[in-house]
Design a protein around this nucleic acid. Structure first.
Lengths: 140, 140
DNA sequence: GCTGATAGTAAACTAAATTTACTACATGTC
DNA sequence: GACATGTAGTAAATTTAGTTTACTATCAGC
């Protein structure tokens, strides 16, 4: 069943990311925080957009951002005077946040390498293309 | 990035399962409950094994089972006299639980059909084989 | 029949998501 | 330019979920 396979694969990836963060010293990050670091990361994005990206509510995202702000990973800046929308507060990564994002990227690159080594580059590329195609189809 | 693709795909599958359950009238089931119905389902299994399958703790699984028991989806039976282990209480689906499991299976079959239609049978089969291979590799 | 380990359970606590509700700003209408 | 309506962001209160801690019953080895 494709459901079980996708579940297993994703849970494995998530567990590896969390382990990698732990190993790199980011011991205060927990699973829900990963929603914020989701590609392409929160830098410059608005809370509402991050919420949509993570398929959660603005309120839940707001709590995550507050938590990450207290832990020193992100900050929310008031809209600049020349900004188009005076309501929009952009999220920015702190230096610590940038390092955490890099640690996540490192783990993902390792995982990609492991899959490519195991499946072969072309087969791996085909899987990614297929998943991408299904994502496109889902968004219609 | 394979991480983002797997996350997106799995979250989509999970959302479709929950929608399908809602539509079929199982409105009291929530996302965590799906861990229990995970392939091959809880019928006859022991709580500890279900916990391991869902990669969670025995305690968390116990709470899920209690919740599902209160909602009338499963029941936990005392070990029979002839059972090998007097500590082991097996989980069993009620008729309602069986119907819910069938509803989940229906959604999954629909999803499989949609993927196969979109990607072609052989390409879809190849993806499943690859994911299966990675699962095998992860369990070493 | 002790001893240490395992299966199951649950209360208490902590973490996370949802519901509800509010403020500030934006946009369109008259 | 005043007013109505909608949107972005925020947060308290509540509900839901998971972890920590701790207990009982059974088992397996000696």
């Amino acid at each position: 069943m494709i459901g079980a396979l996708l579940r297993y694969a994703w849970q494995g990836v998530r567990a590896q990311i969390l382990d990698g963060l732990q190993a790199a010293g980011f011991t205060d990050l927990r699973a829900p925080h990963l929603d914020v670091f989701q590609h392409p990361g929160p830098e410059g994005a608005r809370p509402g957009d991050l919420a949509e990206r993570a398929r959660t509510t603005k309120q839940a995202m707001n709590q995550l951002l507050r938590s990450l702000e207290e832990l020193g990973y992100v900050e929310r800046r008031s809209p600049s005077a020349k900004s188009a929308d005076g309501r929009a507060r952009a999220v920015h990564l702190t230096p610590r946040g940038v390092r955490a994002a890099a640690a996540i990227r490192d783990v993902l690159l390792e995982i990609e390498a492991a899959w490519a080594a195991r499946l072969g580059a072309s087969r791996f590329a085909d899987i990614k293309a297929a998943l991408e195609e299904m994502r496109g189809a889902a968004e219609r």
